[in-house]
């Protein structure tokens, strides 16, 4: 029982990160019908922004919640700017062409970011500063052997707070209303006097900031960051968005948590039914195929869903 609970905690912990990234996929898709394949790399950029910020501000030597907070917010801002720049200079110029052009542009941007980073700083993994003292602190015991570490608690709390904040922005603020209007119909929104370009930029900015938060948070649990870290994680977050129903915000969160839990249970229990832990990544993509075959609109998606 304690092992099961532990695996659930582990799974939801990774799932929360997937969810944060999946939100960016789903918001951009909701507005532009674009799968932003560079999104996983924005997650990586966020992690590195946090890393360099911590080093340049000397925060690595002063581990505390405050340092983590500064790095978290700083990297979210940097990633938001990166996201807005990508949209402005790569996607907006080709937006008037077919959707395929934008999709190929997204793949190009993704490869460009990855290879720029590899060329500039090398592919060797770097160690993200340990702000929470995870390396020397024992976890909090729940019952039996089940335990939860400080990093895991922080990941849960911050992710939930960010998701609630996003929900508030989308449903309770004026820009949120504008975002929903743009996702409903871009041209009508423009006719109503909404500055659609600004709203699209904002959507990229918010999505990128959430991905960066995922990058910094996950680095508290797993300090190993490298320029290619966004590829697989980004793809799984994309699967999570599709699983939940792409374009649907609660769906992205649900999808993220489910994918995280599914892959952890494959690792933890797969060997009982003859699935080696190496099949973990295959499972995420098998889920993608199953969803597309059985319920293409995803768990919470529907064809007339209002999308943001």
């Amino acid at each position: 029982m304690d092992t099961f609970v532990q695996q659930l905690i582990n799974g939801l912990n990774i799932g929360a990160i997937y969810a944060l990234i999946a939100l960016g996929y789903t918001m951009v898709y909701g507005i532009l019908r674009l799968i932003n394949f560079a999104h996983g790399d924005v997650y990586m950029v966020g992690a590195f922004a946090g890393y360099f910020l911590a080093l340049s501000l000397g925060l690595a030597a002063a581990p505390s919640f405050l340092s983590l907070g500064i790095v978290l917010v700083g990297s979210m801002l940097i990633a938001a700017v990166v996201g807005v720049i990508i949209e402005r200079f790569a996607y907006r110029p080709v937006r008037k062409y077919s959707r395929m052009t934008t999709l190929i542009m997204a793949i190009g941007v993704s490869l460009l970011i990855e290879n720029l980073f590899v060329a500039q700083i090398g592919a060797a993994p770097r160690a993200f500063p340990d702000f929470l003292g995870s390396q020397s602190q024992l976890p909090y015991r729940l019952f039996g052997n089940a335990a939860i570490s400080k990093a895991q608690i922080v990941i849960f709390l911050v992710s939930v707070a960010l998701m609630v904040l996003l929900q508030w922005i989308v449903y309770k603020t004026k820009v949120g209303t504008a975002m929903r209007a743009v996702s409903f119909n871009l041209n009508s929104a423009k006719l109503m006097g909404i500055n659609t370009d600004a709203i699209i930029s904002l959507t990229f900015g918010i999505g990128s900031a959430l991905a960066a938060a995922g990058g910094v948070l996950t680095a508290q649990y797993n300090p190993n960051i490298d320029p290619l870290m966004g590829i697989l994680t980004g793809l799984k977050a994309f699967v999570a968005a599709v699983l939940g129903g792409i374009g649907n915000i609660p769906g992205a969160v649900l999808g993220g948590l489910l994918i995280g839990a599914a892959e952890t249970f494959v690792v933890g229990y797969g060997h009982h039914i003859g699935i080696a832990s190496t099949y973990r990544d295959a499972v995420a993509f098998a889920i993608l195929i199953l969803v597309l075959l059985i319920r293409p609109s995803g768990l919470l998606g529907s064809t007339v869903q209002e999308k943001v």
Partner: peptide, 16 residues
């Protein structure tokens, strides 16, 4: 238990 190079989360294997 096994993993592959580049994996970032080992908590599933370690819990088992």
């Amino acid at each position: 238990q096994s993993y592959t190079q580049g994996d970032r989360d080992f908590s599933g294997q370690l819990t088992a």
